[in-house]
Amino acid sequence: MSIASVIDHTLLKPEATRDQIVQLCTEAITHGFASVCVNSCWVSEVSERLVATDVRTCTVIGFPLGAASTHAKAAEATYAVQDGADELDMVINIGWLRSGDYDAVRDDIAAVVEAAQGRCVKVILETCLLSDEEIRIAGKLAVDAGASFVKTSTGFSSGGATVETVALMAQSVAGRCQVKASGGIHTAAEAKAMIEAGATRIGTSSGVAIVEG
């Protein structure tokens, strides 16, 4: 397995231009990345550019706060699928989780899973805001709701992925879903460390530097 094949080549900055999105797709095709991950306004354009390639179109749902209503997240997921998204990275409702509203958190995830119609759903936990026990609980809720992955971070909060957190997440889901490490991964050594800790997907805006370095 090459590092390139597990990288979600990511550009989620609000100021991203069309030219940058086109370049992102070109780089992903050239290097054989797993997916191109963009905000949902770019999904239709990205999916068209990736037709007849092995690179998947990934988008984010409820990003970056996770605090949109469940109805809004499900609607965003529905339209993303219609526009050609193959994978959906949704942000968990962190406030509900920390309040102990676990049924609401599970139902929030399940609504996006249903809207995804069998496509891969990755649940972003934003682990820098959670305790170890909350990370374990969130992993169980994601599994119970039918998610394909749990993911460390948006990259827009106070911290990103750490080896320790990835290992904790991998232990907590125990093979019932996969783990994506994202946020602050800039080098091949950092990416390899995340994979050794249990990640099977890497989200990064430094994909080209990682594979060429």
Rank of each mutant, 00 (worst) to 15 (best):
G183E: 12
S157Y: 13
V208G: 15
I61F: 06
Q171S: 10
T17V: 11
I185R: 04
S44C: 04
A67T: 09
R56Y: 07
K13G: 14
S69N: 09
Q178P: 03
T10Q: 15
V38S: 10
R56S: 11
S47K: 12
D132G: 06
C25Q: 07
M169K: 01
E133H: 03
D144M: 04
C58W: 02
Q117P: 05
N93Q: 04
S47P: 08
R18V: 11
A75D: 04
D144Y: 00
C128R: 08
E76F: 01
L50E: 11
A193T: 10
C37M: 11
R201F: 13
R56F: 08
E76L: 00
V91F: 03
A68T: 12
E212D: 13
V112M: 02
D86Q: 04
I109A: 00
A80P: 01
Y79G: 00
G84R: 12
D108Y: 06
G159K: 06
V112G: 02
T26S: 14
A181S: 15
G160L: 10
K180V: 00
S35K: 10
D83C: 14
V173S: 00
S205H: 09
T78N: 03
T204P: 14
V166C: 11
I21F: 03
D54L: 13
A28R: 09
V211F: 12
S2F: 03
A199W: 06
T152N: 06
V46H: 11
A67R: 11
V22H: 14
V179R: 13
T162S: 15
I185E: 09
G160A: 13
D108S: 04
M90N: 02
A74D: 03
E76W: 01
D101I: 02
R18P: 03
F33K: 13
G184Q: 06
C177P: 05
V163Q: 02
R18H: 13
G160D: 11
C120Y: 01
C58P: 00
V121D: 02
R18M: 12
F149N: 02
T152A: 08
A75S: 08
K73S: 06
I94L: 05
L12C: 06
I195P: 02
A174R: 05
L141S: 01
S206L: 10
I109D: 00
E164P: 06
L88I: 01
A209Y: 11
E133L: 04
I210H: 09
A74K: 00
I21T: 05
L129P: 01
C120P: 05
V112N: 03
V123F: 01
A193H: 12
V22I: 15
G184C: 10
D86M: 01
A68E: 07
W96G: 10
T127P: 10
R49Y: 07
S69L: 14
G184V: 07
T127M: 08
T162A: 14
A72C: 06
K192R: 12
L141G: 01
D132H: 06
V46G: 10
K73R: 12
S131W: 07
T162L: 15
C120W: 00
Q82C: 08
I7E: 09
